[in-house]
Design a protein around this nucleic acid. Structure first.
Lengths: 157, 157
DNA sequence: TTCATTTATCTCGAATTAGTACTAATTCTA
DNA sequence: TAGAATTAGTACTAATTCGAGATAAATGAA
């Protein structure tokens, strides 16, 4: 007779190993991808966070500082710093919110828009190259699974 | 007659959008996951890098400082700092390489081993919970695709 | 209205990490 | 085998990020 408990334990262990491995692979894959992207972005004189913030207001329009933090996943104190940097480079500006005086909006400047008009298409092309190993179906599938994962992880809080 | 070129262009655009989205989802998923893991690790009085270094020498034995950087994906200059911290906490020690005098090895101390004996299983359990949304098959599949992706991204260098 | 609470942003200080330049040891090569 | 080139590690510096309040404005309840 087979030892059922033993089999179950082995299956659990295997599952645990897979989780550990998945974590490592996920980390490494994103690390490799980000290295590429960061390299591309650096040539613009921007760091990844700055690019992310600029991209946000370039594509989604004026944003309250607060919202930027939520979308780009950065603490509000850090956003202050990043926006300062971008303001120094004259790529965006702060302006007052028309009705709520607590709020400051970040707006892209002409200079920022001109920059993004030039580089955003390149950014997309770059990502396209990076993900060229997968076809559309695979990408869709991966997106679904990763979404599931991300949501699950968040809900553990 | 259908406009073939138009169809092709639309397909390409869709593919580009998928790549962009995949990048965002990947980033967010890992971010959510890491936040969880970091939270868990913080309770041990370690930061994620320290844990990663300690885990490495706990599981793989003594390592040259150099190797640690490669495995944990951190600049060698930063490793110095991390190893300093761990040495202060008496969780590891530096010792000389027996034959190559340029090399210093990081070794885990008894205190470090005792700590890891206690927390590493918890770490695995934590990951298991995070990845509980997927079954073993899905994990395997995800691992394969992410490996493919990671390798492809690396080879673009 | 008035006062407590919430919300949005910022300041400051500390932690973490990357970059640069340097020393020491080893290896390669002419 | 001397001297150049490489490799390992570290010290120092600068950049980036977060967390803990501080401040000011808006909101809500009595």
């Amino acid at each position: 007779m087979r030892n059922i408990k033993g089999v179950i334990r082995l299956t659990e262990e295997r599952d645990e190993e897979m989780s550990l491995k998945l974590f490592v692979v996920l980390t490494r894959a994103l690390d490799a991808i980000q290295k590429r992207v960061i390299e591309d972005i650096k040539h613009l004189g921007l760091n990844p966070t700055e690019f992310a913030v600029l991209e946000l207001i370039y594509n989604k329009g004026d944003q309250p500082i607060q919202k930027i933090g939520e979308k780009v996943l950065i603490a509000s104190s850090s956003i202050t710093y990043v926006v300062d940097q971008l303001e120094k480079k004259e790529l965006l500006e702060r302006k007052l919110h028309p009705s709520d005086r607590r709020v400051k909006l970040a707006t892209i400047t002409q200079k920022g828009k001109t920059l993004m008009d030039e580089v955003f298409p390149k950014h997309k092309k770059g990502l396209q190259e990076i993900f060229a190993g997968l076809d559309v179906k695979e990408k869709e599938q991966l997106i679904d699974q990763l979404k599931k994962l991300g949501l699950h992880a968040q809900n553990l809080n």
